[in-house]
Structures are given as structure tokens and as C-alpha cells.
Design a protein around this nucleic acid. Sequence first.
DNA 1: ATTTGCAATTTAATCGATAATATTTCATAC
DNA 2: GTATGAAATATTATCGATTAAATTGCAAAT
Lengths: 231, 231
Amino acid sequence: MARPSRTGETDATRVRRLLRASLIEGEIPPGSKLRVQALATQYGTGASPVREALSSLAAEGLVERLDQRGFRAAPVTLGAFEELLRARCWVEELVLRESILAGGQQWEEALVVARYRLSRTPRRADPSSLRDDPAWDRVHLEFHRALTAACPSPTMLGFCETLRERASRYRGVALTVAYPTRDVAAEHEAIAEAALARQVPEACRLLVEHYQRTAGYLRLALEGSQSLTGC
Amino acid sequence: MARPSRTGETDATRVRRLLRASLIEGEIPPGSKLRVQALATQYGTGASPVREALSSLAAEGLVERLDQRGFRAAPVTLGAFEELLRARCWVEELVLRESILAGGQQWEEALVVARYRLSRTPRRADPSSLRDDPAWDRVHLEFHRALTAACPSPTMLGFCETLRERASRYRGVALTVAYPTRDVAAEHEAIAEAALARQVPEACRLLVEHYQRTAGYLRLALEGSQSLTGC
DNA sequence: ATTTGCAATTTAATCGATAATATTTCATAC
DNA sequence: GTATGAAATATTATCGATTAAATTGCAAAT
């Protein structure tokens, strides 16, 4: 039965999209088992679309497939996190460089807008919450995308996006500690400033430091919480 | 019916593996339609495993999914080729650098072996053939892997592998012209020499030139053959 | 000759059922 | 109390059939 959602989107594609978001956002914790029947019921469809979605997410690395034993959300480990961070710094540095070199007026203006929006959005709606406001998450993501958007290689930008998604799965795990005081807004400002001034080495240095600082806190939280095995 | 291949490999996984090889090798030409029923018959299984395999290859970029219109082998275009080449040069340069910096004795020795094997394998068994000998393809692949193997980032190495696979899909399209005389063996020798001598800039320069030279011929062939649309 | 409309055919997407496998439960022995 | 193993249960992987959509073929009209 090709039961169309009227939008042309198939069940498999829809489930893939929703599952993907749940995994990236951390709503589905790393390492947890993904039972086909349960997901089918949850998303109001059958086993086939769910299996297609899971297969596709497995190819992407968000899900692990164990032949004959089903699927589970890809587990996270401290080692994988360190490795991911290193790869991210290398790639983001490269992509930022090429973006600055290739960026024209359109890129500059989009970056200015993204920076402005980020500066105007409070990080936490409720200051007592440990979790960032979804609206801030969005503009923050858009800011980082705007920085590298002019890199003339969709392949590299796609790889960046993949790494970003993988990294975001670690955030939920690390919610156990309050982050030390740190002026993230000023870091973003400085990066944007250097990028707009076309100061390649300075911008790259600041960006990498920005990532490593964030990662440093995350690392502490991960080590403390011991919630990394996902088992 | 969980009909196991006794090896623990599921039908979906097996079909994925075989399809993947066919796509990379160029046996299935880019752009061609992939009909689920036909593939199911060909691989002696049902629609579900085939759809899972296709979904997973779509996530990887080897297959394109058009909702409600099935799957097709990802098409190739001259523009995508140029872009791929650029991304490849950037990433391979980075990975080679880190490999040289991190490589120990084991890496050196494996590289020496790979270089030796490549030097002893004739590129074409039958000199009249335009196609490279599969045995040469293998040792050539292993040589390039050995160069970068010591890079301490599985993520980056995996990305290299993905780009390599995408690139190899272009070779089959470009079989219409004979390559001009060129001493590929000497190029490989020089790269290995520089890498073993830990001359990072020199090795990277030679590797990138190696890719761009190969790509140059491929580009000519692609422009000439006009077989790029895949339609 | 090209375009338009409609029926026939093909193909895609999904469901429900089923067989094989993995996992859990629980009684029994040590 | 823990270990063992067999039955009970749950889950995975797959098939065959079914429905909806896309494509094709073909005739009539412009």
C-alpha cells in the first residue's frame, strides 16, 4: 500500500526524519535498543518503513546494526568523543579558511545577520534550566553554518554537518554539571569579527579554541557522569 | 522468515555489500534506474531486503532516492567531479600530513611493503586492454591506504574512503580514451619516498599533483565522451 | 507533427503473516 | 546462593499479497 502523506513524502522518509531528529537531539539516548515493532506503533506505520529508516541511519552512523540482533542507537564513548573533536577541528578549520577566501558580499551580509540574531537571543529562556533554549540552539547552529557557508565544496560542508550532528549527541549525556562561567557570546563575536576581516589564521585559531573549550567542559561532564557506556 | 546465510549475515546486508561493489566498480552505470523487483530476483531474495540495502546506500550517497519514484544509481556530472576532486585533495593532504606525523615503525614497514607490491604488479595484464588489471587495482588501493593509515582519526580515514569510492565511479565512464603516456609508477615511488623521509610538504604536494594529473585525463575523457548525464 | 486525455500496465510502498533466531524465565541441580 | 539448561516468550528478518501512484501506450484533436 503506497499510502502517501499527500506531500509526496513516504512513510520511510518521514520516520527517518523524525528518528534522526530524536537521535541528534538526544531524546533517544545513545546505546538504547531500537525495537522495530515499538517504533512502528509509535510512528503509526509498519515494520518495513521503520526498517528502511533504520538501515539508512545505520549507514549514516547514528544507528548501529547488529545482524540478527536488530538495531540500537549508536553508543557514545569518551574515546570516540576525543576523536570526533580532533576530526572536527581539522575539518572546520579547513572549511572556514576556504569560506573566508571564497566568501563574497552575500556571505558577509548573511554572517552579519546570523551574528546579530545570535547576539539578540538569550541562551536560556529559564535561567535555572541546564538545557539551552531551542531557539538559541537554532540561531547558534545557523551562526556556525553562516561562517562556513561560502566554502565552495558541498561535500566538505556535508561532512561538517555530519560531524556536528554526531557531536550534538554528546550534549545530552553531559547535562549533569553546570558549565563554568564563560562568555560564549564574546567568543562568537570574536570569530565573526576575524572572519569578516578576512584574517584567516586568527579566525581559524579562535574557532578551534571555541570548540576545544566547549569540548573541555563536555569531557569533564562525561568523565564525571560515567554515563557513557550507554548500557 | 529469518533465513540466515549461516554466516550470520542477513539478506539485507549481503545485498547491500554486493550492490555497493557493483556501484563502485561501475558495473551498474551511474544514473541507471534500480528496480526493486528486478534486483530482488537477481539476488535471490525479496523486496524488503533490497529496499533496506537501497535505503542504506542512499544515505551513503551512492544511490539516489526519489520518493514515490524509486531508486537510481547516483548520477555523475562534470561539476560534481570537479568538486569531488577539490574535496579529495584537501582531505587527503590533511590526512597524509597527520599520518606522516603520527606514523611509527609499523606504518613505515607496511608502506614499504605496499610500495614493493605495487612496483611488482603490472598495471594491465593484457596491454591492449584499456581497463586496469583487478590485481593492480587492489595493490594500488592498498598503497594509497598504507600512505594515510597512520592518521589517528578513523573518522577522517572513513571520509577519505568514501571520497575514494565516489571517485572510482567516474573511472568506468572515462574508458573511451587511451591515457597519454605517463609514468604513474614513478609518481608513486616519489610519494612513498617523501612520506618515508617525513617530508610533509613535499609528500603532500606530490600526492595532490598525482590526483590532479589523474583527474586531468579523466576530465578530458568525460568532456569527450559526453556520457556524463547518465540518461 | 505535436499535444492532450484516458485506459492499460508497470512499479513503488506498505501491510499482515510467518519462520528463524535471540532472549528471558524458571525450575532443578549443585 | 549460584549455575545449568530447557521451555516460553519476544524480536528479527523475510515473504507474498495488496493498494496507490507513476509511467506508458495510443488514439483523437489541434
